[in-house]
Amino acid sequence: MKISTVARHFREGAKNVGRNGWMSFASISSIAVSLFILGVFMLLALNVNKLADQLDNQVQISVYLETDTDQPKIENVERLIKRIPEVKSVTFVSKAEGLARFRESMGEDGKQALEGYDDENNPLPDSFEVEAFNPQQIAFVAKQIEAINESDPDKPVKRVRYGKGTIETLFSITNGVRNIGLFIVLGLAVMAMFLISTTIKMTILARRREIGIMKLVGATNSFIRWPFFIEGALIGFSGSAAAAAGLLIGYSQLVIKTNHSMGLYMLQLSTFDEVKWLVGGTILALGTLLGVWGSTISIRKHLRV
């Protein structure tokens, strides 16, 4: 196709969008709304994945010892834990160290609450932090440690603690949310496409005379159809551009606003740079595709050449 022809098709397509003002606006809005919602679910999914990764890293077993456990016993328990093949590392955390860490993690608020505690009256026990090679082995390793405790007549371990099931729960909730979300988005997308195809149909009807003359003087079918494809694509693209802009601007604000409070829990949202191409690109491509799809339906039905 010649450049001048391409330019003409774009001009005509854009003219169609303008001529059909209100219908175009409705179509653009419906594309924008459905893709905005899709975008929200995409961002949610991306962040859940990231969160799960972060939680994975944090998942480790804390083994709290009885307060009166003596040094040789501590070393013995440590050696036994180290012998479990799934264990990657064992770190001894003395009760003084534990208190310091606790203070730090509580931040400003915690400082006051923990005031008055020092080495003399430290309520925390000594503990081990045990890390497995693989987060999935955590539960198994915890059982092994409990078994070690059972076989020792002194029962030196007071409590074995790990983030039992947090990730699983997180995933099952988000799976549910995602399925509902996909359902809603699918419904909205079909509606948007239907609206686009109706819009294109109205343009075709409005330009019936012109199309008739084009056929009469020998314009090819593709020449006649192109402006309508472009009209659909422009509607889809405009709607998705609006959705993408809204989403990404909103998200960048959200990241800035929550950065501080999330940081307290050692967690972080996906950064703007991590999501912008994936979310923006997907939405733009999908919107344009929906637009072209909608116009294809209408052209098939109403532009018999």
């Binding site: 010649k2 022809t5 003409r8 005379r209 012109e210 003359i213 084009m214 003087v217 020998g218 314009a219 090819t220 020449f223 006649i224």
Partner: peptide
Amino acid sequence: LPKLSAYENVAFAMEVIE
């Protein structure tokens, strides 16, 4: 075509066959 001038009506037949 009512919205096109005389010239444009004639030129239209050439335009649409590129």
